[in-house]
């Protein structure tokens, strides 16, 4: 009979990644967990010992490691069905601050890391004609806001990258999902100034699994962010820059 399905989560040690691991485990998936902090991964793996789980310590900014580790995971599991790129950082900058170092780091983790991982994944999934690629972007990528120019840029670029992958791979049978969470109760939220509609990582994980099942292209979590961002995206620029959003 077939091998049980497998999910790979890059950025699995905490937040949405860890919650997704728990949700996938509840659905009986085997898990490949990737993150920098191996101690946290191993703790999570112990918690999820009912399913086959393997941990891989890796810094997503070590781009050359990504295709090698991807192959290692394929060798270890024999098949991978879902790949979630969840690694991301939000480095706070003040309203008058322009910090190239912070911006560069966010580009490295949020965007280049995703490209380093999802390119080999896309190549393999495209050849095998199946698989789900899930990128955790953000509502922050829908407009350039005064509070977080660098972060907004990385998430906008990630959303565009995922859209391009989708346009390449859908006809080959591969599903690409862009997830745009609003405010989720994670470590990253500590750096967010004003928050509302805050949800738990568990709720976000449940929404993401539902979106995978219905093969959605873009999923806002919670869903009402979709309506709000639809309005915000259509505010003309000359008005948007006057708003304190």
């Amino acid at each position: 009979m077939n091998l049980p399905p497998t999910a790979l989560i890059i950025g699995a040690s905490s937040g949405i990644g860890a919650a997704l691991a728990r949700e996938f485990a509840r659905n009986g998936l085997r898990l490949a967990l990737v993150a920098r902090r191996k101690d946290l991964l191993e703790k999570l793996a112990q918690e999820l010992s009912a399913v086959e789980t393997r941990c891989y310590a890796h810094d997503v900014a070590e781009y050359d490691e990504a295709p090698v580790l991807w192959q290692q995971i394929l060798q270890d599991f024999g098949r991978v069905d879902i790949v979630v790129y969840n690694a991301g950082v939000l480095l706070p900058v003040g309203p008058e601050e322009y910090d190239f170092g912070a911006d560069k780091r966010m580009v490295e983790i949020n965007l280049l890391g995703a490209m380093a991982w999802l390119n080999p994944v896309a190549l393999t999934f495209g050849r095998t004609g199946r698989g789900h690629i899930v990128g955790i972007s953000s509502v922050a990528g829908d407009r350039g806001r005064v509070g977080a120019p660098g972060y907004n840029t990385t998430k906008a670029a990630l959303s565009t990258f995922l859209e391009a992958l989708r346009n390449r791979l859908t006809k080959k049978g591969v599903h690409v999902l862009t997830v745009k969470p609003g405010f989720v109760q994670t470590d990253m939220l500590k750096n967010a100034p004003k928050t509302f509609w805050v949800i738990s990582p568990e709720q976000a994980a449940q929404d993401i699994v539902k979106a995978i099942h219905r093969r959605a292209q873009v999923a806002y979590t919670p869903e009402r962010w979709g309506l709000l961002m639809n309005v915000i995206r259509h505010i003309p620029s000359f008005l948007f820059r006057r708003l304190k959003i």
Binding site: V68, Q75, L123
Partner: peptide
Amino acid sequence: SQLPLERLDK
């Protein structure tokens, strides 16, 4: 692994 990624197939 030293094998090329392009060799991975269904």
